[in-house]
Amino acid sequence: MIRLTINDREISVPENTTVLEAARMHGIGIPTLCNHPKLTASGGCRMCIVEITGIPRPMTSCTTPAADGMVVITSTPEIEELRKLVLELIISDHPNDCMTCEATGDCDLQELAYAYGVQGVEYAGEKRFYPERDGNPFIERDLAKCILCGRCVKVCNEVQGVDAIDFGYRGFKSKISTSYEEDLDCEFCGQCIAVCPTGALRGKQWARKGRYRDIEQVDTICPYCGTGCNITAQVKQNEIIRITSKPGTWNEGWLCVKGRFGYQFVNSPERLTKPLIRRDVQFEAVTWDEAVAYAAGKLQAIRKKHGADAIGGLSSARCTNEENYLFQKFMRAAVGTNNVDHCARL
């Protein structure tokens, strides 16, 4: 264990902990922009600077290892001034359109600007301009809003192992780019969206469906593969408008393209909405009572004539445990046969 002092509080943390992590472990807040707890630190934005006794210049807490006897102060007038400067620089080159930005309410930059009272356009410097649009159907990339924190590059490399994007060019022209600046063509896991601290990366299908006010968030499980990732459905007026995942669950907030972007089927106009009975070649819409009475009658007649084992049931690996339990109980107890299986025992 390492013992150090942060803001007059003596704390102890495990070896290999950064000053930022140490502070967070003990509920001491330090503002950050480029750092993400699940990714390696780059020390790029300098929002997280702190004063460490014995070191003359402010240090980025996300890259400085905590050491025994270290004395840290997270906020002084000078440090706050420097942080404000960092923000002003970023925001001077950031489109001032929180009004229509999809990320409003879910943006680290907006929150910090609010906290530090930084308004748009302090310097009338040169602005970056990115006319091109990316043709991929999943991810909207608005490079003008990119603050070059590098989280997306890191998550794509460290977590997803795809390396679809990287820093391109240098200095003022620096930007996040695919190779040869082609349209993004990757696994579309959306991990980069999940870690982006601004509105630079968003889901295309989220556009104008609703931001972060008046939405309901419900935790549930992805309907697709056996991994069973935790997802949070964001809902507005009985419509799923976005799927996210909380970093605190076993899947650590990571999802794949199906889990993150594959929810539109729920509102498909092709959903079955009425019980149907086949009359000759046509289907006829009927009431539930009619449909079930008809089906139950048929099953009973067949059972009477041919025995219960002339009836079989196939259930689904997509139904819940409760439904599967009840389905087999129905086949065994109500119909009277063990002819029950699920289609994909795989």
């Binding site: 419900v218 935790d219 549930t220 499980i221 309907p223 056996g226 991994t227 069973g228 935790n230 459905a233 809902v235 009985n238 419509e239 799923i240 076993w250 929810y263 089927f265 729920v266 959903r271 079955l272 909405t273 009425k274 019980p275 149907l276 009975i277 086949r278 289907f283 449909a291 079930v292 008809y294 089906a295 048929k298 997509r318 819940t320 445990n321 409760e322 439904e323």
Partner: peptide
């Protein structure tokens, strides 16, 4: 006979994932 069902975003229950973890499915819409 065709019976229109609710999808997994429309009901409560549990799924058991591949690592035997029983997890809560919640009605979302």
């Amino acid at each position: 006979v065709i019976l229109p069902a609710a999808c997994s975003f429309e009901k409560d229950g549990t799924f058991t994932n591949t690592e035997r973890r029983v997890q809560r499915v919640r009605k979302v819409v």
